[in-house]
Amino acid sequence: MEIAFTILLFIALVATAIAIVFIKRLFAVVMLSGVFSLLAALLFIVMDAVDVAFTEAAVGGGISSVLMLGTIALTARTQKQPERYSLVPLAIVLLTGAVLIYGTLDMPNFGSPDAPAQRHIGPEYIARTPTDIDVPNIVTAVLASYRGYDTLGEVVVVFTAGLGVILLLSGLGRRRGTPYPRGVSANRDQDNAQ
């Protein structure tokens, strides 16, 4: 039952990805990428990662679509028809895929309880969380306490990316009186003035 559901999800995911390759209208591409994220969230639930599924649904289906639509509104809404199709990218992709699949042949079976990844530190977190921290959600305990230092780094990355976007787009880095770059009409200060 679980395997059948997983395979069904995979077929839908691959179909969505292939549709994104061929569709020229960027609006449809963005919508399909939102669909892709929601399907990915379902797959994460099947694989027991409820926190990850939650994040993927909120981020991929919500914010990411909004930002991409914002970009389309500021740029173009269709992709240009390529002048000629080249086989070189396809060859590169097939070669890389073949190498990756060769690499998976040594991986442990999916869901195997004695895989190397299950032996070392994961079980320790599970065993120690009830006595050390006493919160039911082990993911939160690892995220905020055992690996708090990592998470601080991630928050700083988000902070830095936010700063980058603000500097690139909000015009805070632009000195007063500098002319606008080509393609920007002067009336944008109506919203930016404050």
């Binding site: 909004v66 930002l67 914002g70 970009t71 389309i72 509104a73 500021l74 740029t75 173009a76 809404r77 936010g162 976007v165 603000i166 690139l168 787009l169 909000s170 393609g183 920007v184 009409s185 009336n187 944008r188 919203d191 930016n192």
Partner: peptide, 14 residues
């Protein structure tokens, strides 16, 4: 929210 402000505050081309 800052990213949304930055994108939405620009004049749209469409």
């Amino acid at each position: 929210l800052a990213i949304y402000y930055a994108f939405a505050g620009r004049p749209p081309s469409l």
